[in-house]
Design a protein around this nucleic acid. Structure first.
Length: 957
RNA sequence: GGGCGCGUAGCUCAGCGGGAGAGCACCUCGUUGACAUCGAGGGGGUCACAGGUUCGAUCCCUGUCGCGCCCA
């Protein structure tokens, strides 16, 4: 029995359990051993995360694809899991320690802290997974993975070691984006450029050999800077070689104010004559551009900050190098000052001595850490790098050649843009939570990279024995006892960028580096579904790693979906407070309504501005479906097991079969081409505007009438079409459809595993053969594997369409005119079909019950001409008259008819104008011209009928 | 500064070289036997603006204005 009212909250938890109990989403079900696999890896959400709208959209779309393919008989693996989110997780746990007033991370030490993180993960790491389940995500939860799992960690170590051996991972001293709060390097992509109102400080640098005088411009050169505090690390002043104002100074030196360092004036194109004074200070250790300039001119790199962004110069040999007597005094004075305080101090001091020319307000972009929010410091450090440029080449080629394609295609441009300008990828992070870099150092700093500590230590000790640094006996002791080698061999403290492990996700989750059956069966995956904001972070890197280690792209298709924004189009963010919580919407309207909304709005290439009124509308749609199923149940509708919809006799039944088949085809084709919105809309229209509004209404007289063949057939057809509806809606609305599937008939199994509609007359066996043949075809290589998709049904019936279409048009026309003339519903009007064809008259007789009920018609009769004083309607070229004695307002009716006449004449005019245009007839496609002729004929015929009607009206009045 | 995208009904959005569509909102009517989370009917748009291509432009091209995002 179907409950009287639809309450999503009542069914969702129960249905979830049913899926779980049946292990419905498990990949590799025995009954699908011979089926073609279909696999998707989930973009692993951050383990600290909770479900936001972006996740809801992303996972709804993946789920639609997975459920669709599962119903089409494929062996689906939707691989779930989470990533360990290095910085984010470490921060969460540190915050927790602080709140609980427990010892800090550094106080407790690395091992103890990591224990705490794992403990946190065990307690709180499952939040987002449970939220995905509430959304209805049909992942194979039994295969859930975490990037810090043993197996995935092994993959990370192996990849690191191999790339290192191949020279594609190396250590280098370069500028990185340094976060002085989190005390770690972060990637370019984690840096947010923020517009800041700052200043441009114009500083006077005295020229060597001249006596500095603030009023004598020839005694100094003015440089403009947004970061005066970095002047401590200046190692040159650059001017543009073309800039005639300064040519005489090139090659000379200036004496750095306050510091006393003698630095050259160099000519370099980097200096923009238009900007500031045209001369620019060069600080290679604190600016990315200056770093490059410094390399060109062999300038020293003088780092004047410590890792927390405080001035560090007192014991800094690079700083003190070549400074005059007394320089140390200033160094000690400013030592330890925070970078922003130092700025004030330095500017004030420069001003005191006349070195500050002017301060100019200046709006510019300043890099900020997206996690910490503090200003990022370009900082000179030793870090590990991946040679991304080399790895990018095959990844670029794979997209160029079409091995992997983006949907929509225009994202390929973004991909190429980034890949072709790719920089070395800094993969080390100064964190504790993450994959610790598998590199060990000997006492002389020599590095030993190996997958295990045992191997690295073995190599290292062997090496130092050979070098006679230690004796074999010492080596033996150190091998046996880790404590003995402490201080001799130490492991790199740093961990790897989280994205390093995410890049391996499509194969590490399948068991790589082991040669597992899953890897063989499910790699490459079929499609990756993700947002465009992650193309660089993740997609590009999976492409590189997949190609390098698996020798094959990780996925042939990348579907890039929109960003979900708020109603006004702003990006949702916590700080803006405009976040719509998908879980609230699920509580309020049900997961199905939310999913359907997201799918319906997921048009390609456009962001989603979510309005909750849409969610409400689709909740109403779910209610409509619910009630339609109740109606079917109340009328004893059930389809026999061997019901053949193509053999239906009744016209109405043939019509709905025709319409159903068409809807199934539309939905199928739309999902196949990732047009989720078209699929959702096609299903919506069919269910509401065809099945409910017309089919069920037209079927009522039969269902309420006497038993007989027609009633039996109709009951079966109502049930059959309902089942087709449940199927096509299932990928979008899995909960309600699964529930209705269960309660409307006794079923062999879950809807989630039921077969999608297919070509007429194809048996289960034939279908699975069709699917299996592709999988076992030895000629088809994995990338070339072309899968003959099970075809959708091909039944059509134009005659049924013509007949039911006429009924629909007639009823609609009568309703419209009745409303227009304010005829109250209780008044039944007679209907006269005037001069209609025999076909029409026969139809009217067959459908009289329906017409009477739906159009509020009393008697139906036939005549050669419309009776006097009747409202005359044109339905498919014939006149239907409503004789309404005393009801018809002749004047109003005349106005109505004249309006229609106007429309007909306008149509004629437009068509004739086109047809009279020789160029149109000559150039336009034949079908278009023919269509135009037909339009003209139809409009002409209409005009004739309307004129007749007008004439009759005049005669009557 | 470079790139991508968007300006269509009051709102949120589809569509797209041959007569403008949906949902919500609005107005009128409705206790007809699944459904008021409903049914019936209706109003509402120089498809941002200006040029161009074309027999024909909301759709293609160019420019302008406005908006969003990404990268410098």
């Amino acid at each position: 029995m179907i409950e009287k009212t639809y309450q999503p909250a009542d069914i969702e938890a129960r249905i979830s359990r049913a899926w779980e109990d049946a292990e419905a989403f498990k990949a590799g079900r025995p009954d699908r051993r011979d089926a073609v696999p279909y696999s998707i890896v989930i973009p692993p959400p951050n383990v600290t995360g909770s479900l936001h709208m972006g996740h809801a959209l992303n996972n709804t779309l993946q789920d639609i694809l997975c459920r669709f393919e599962r119903m089409r008989g494929r062996d689906v693996l939707w691989q779930p899991g989470t990533d360990h989110a290095g910085i984010a997780t470490q921060m969460v746990v540190e915050r927790q320690l602080m709140e609980r007033q427990e010892p800090s991370r550094r106080d407790m030490g690395r091992a103890k802290f990591l224990e705490r993180v794992w403990q946190w993960k065990a307690e709180s790491g499952g939040v987002i997974v449970n939220q995905l389940k509430r959304l209805g995500a049909s992942c194979d939860w039994s295969r859930e993975r975490f990037t810090m799992d043993e197996g995935l960690s092994r993959a990370v170590a192996k990849v690191f070691v191999e790339l290192h051996r191949q020279g594609l991972i190396y250590k280098d001293k370069r500028l990185v984006n340094w976060d002085p709060k989190l005390l770690t390097a972060i990637s370019d992509l984690e840096v947010q450029q923020v517009e800041v109102k700052g200043n441009l400080w114009h500083l006077r640098y005295p020229i060597e050999g001249k006596t500095f005088d603030p009023v004598d411009p020839s005694s100094f050169i003015v440089v403009a800077t947004t970061r005066p505090e970095t002047m401590l690390g200046d190692s040159a002043v650059a001017v543009n070689p073309e800039d005639e104002r300064y040519t005489h100074l090139v090659g000379k030196h200036v004496i750095l104010p306050l510091v006393g360092r003698r630095i050259p004036i160099v000519a370099d194109e980097y200096s923009d004559p238009e900007k500031g004074s045209g001369a620019v200070k060069i600080t290679p250790a604190h600016d990315f551009n200056d770093f490059e300039v410094g390399k060109r001119h062999h300038l020293p790199q003088i780092n004047v900050l410590d890792i927390e962004g405080k001035i560090s110069v007192a014991d800094n040999s690079a700083y003190l190098e070549g400074l005059p007597e007394g320089a140390r005094e200033f160094a000690e004075e400013i030592e330890g000052t925070d970078r922003f305080a130092a700025r004030k101090m330095i500017v004030a001091r420069l001003d005191d001595f006349g070195f500050l020319e002017k301060i100019e307000p200046n709006v510019h972009m300043v890099p900020h850490g997206d996690r910490s929010g503090v200003v990022i410091e370009p900082f000179l450090t030793d870090q590990w790098y991946v040679d991304a440029k080399t790895l990018a080449q095959p990844a670029i080629a794979a997209v160029r050649s079409g091995e992997t394609t983006f949907v929509p295609k225009n994202w390929e441009k973004t991909y190429f843009e980034w890949m072709e300008n790719i920089q070395p990828w800094c993969i080390s992070r100064q964190l504790w939570w993450g994959h610790q870099i598998p590199a060990w150092y000997g006492p002389d700093g020599k590095v030993f990279v190996a997958e295990t500590e045992e191997e690295a230590v073995g190599n290292a000790l062997g090496y130092y024995v050979e070098q006679e640094v230690i004796t074999p006996a010492q080596a033996h002791e150190m091998t046996q006892d880790a404590a003995k080698r402490e201080g001799f061999i130490t492991r790199d403290e740093d961990v790897l960028d989280t994205w390093f492990s995410s890049a391996l996700w499509p194969f590490s989750t399948l068991g790589w580096p082991d040669d597992t059956p899953e890897l063989d069966r499910y790699y490459p995956t079929d499609v990756l579904v993700t947002g465009f904001d992650i193309i660089f972070f993740w997609v590009a890197r999976m492409m590189m790693m997949g190609l390098h280690f698996m020798d094959d792209v990780p996925f042939p298709t990348v579907y890039i979906h929109a960003l979900v924004r708020d109603e006004k189009g702003a990006k949702m963010s916590k700080s803006k407070g405009n976040v719509i919580d998908p879980l609230n919407l699920i509580d309020q309207y049900g997961a199905d309504a939310l999913r359907f909304t997201l799918a319906a709005m997921a048009a390609q290439g456009r962001d989603i501005k979510l309005a909750t009124s849409r969610v409400e509308g689709y909740r109403n749609f779910a209610t409509k479906l619910w009630n339609a199923c109740r109606f079917a149940e109340m009328n004893g509708c059930a389809a026999p097991k061997d019901f053949d919809f193509t053999a239906a006799k009744d016209t109405l039944n043939r019509w709905i079969a025709h319409e159903t088949v068409r809807a199934v085809r539309e939905v199928t084709e739309a999902i196949e081409s990732y047009r989720f919105n078209d699929a959702a809309e096609a299903a919506y229209r069919f269910v509401w505007n065809v099945y409910c509004d017309w089919y069920l209404e037209l079927a009522k007289p039969v269902l309420m009438g006497e038993d007989g063949a027609a009633k039996t057939e109709t009951r079966a057809m109502v049930a059959w079409a309902r089942d087709e509806i449940l199927k096509i809606l299932h990928p979008f609305m899995p909960f309600i459809t699964e529930e209705l599937w269960a309660v409307t008939a006794s079923r062999d199994g879950l809807l989630a595993l039921a077969p999608w509609s297919r070509k007429t007359g194809m048996s289960d066996e034939e279908m699975s053969m069709l699917v299996a043949s592709a999988a076992t075809d030895p000629m088809a290589g994995p990338a070339m594997l072309s899968i003959p998709e099970p075809e959708t049904p091909d039944f059509t019936d134009d005659a049924a369409e013509a007949e039911i279409g006429w009924v629909v048009d007639l009823v609609t026309a009568i309703r419209s005119v009745r409303a227009e003339m304010n005829i109250v519903p209780s008044t039944l009007t007679p209907l006269v079909l005037a001069g209609a064809s025999a076909d029409t008259n026969a139809r009217a007789s067959r459908w009289s019950d329906v017409i009477k009920r739906l159009a509020r018609v009393g008697e139906i009769s036939f005549a050669d001409a419309a009776p006097q004083g009747a409202v005359q309607l044109l339905v498919r070229g014939e006149v239907a008259a409503l004789p309404l004695k005393g009801v018809v307002d002749f004047a109003a009716e005349q106005v109505r008819l004249e309006k229609e006449l106007g429309k007909a004449e306008a149509d004629i005019k437009r068509a004739e104008a086109k047809l009279a245009n020789e160029k149109f007839v000559a150039n336009a496609a034949e079908e278009v011209v023919e269509e135009e002729r037909e339009k003209r004929e139809a409009a002409l015929a209409r005009k004739v009928k309307i004129l007749e009607a007008l004439l009759r009206l005049k005669n009557a009045s």
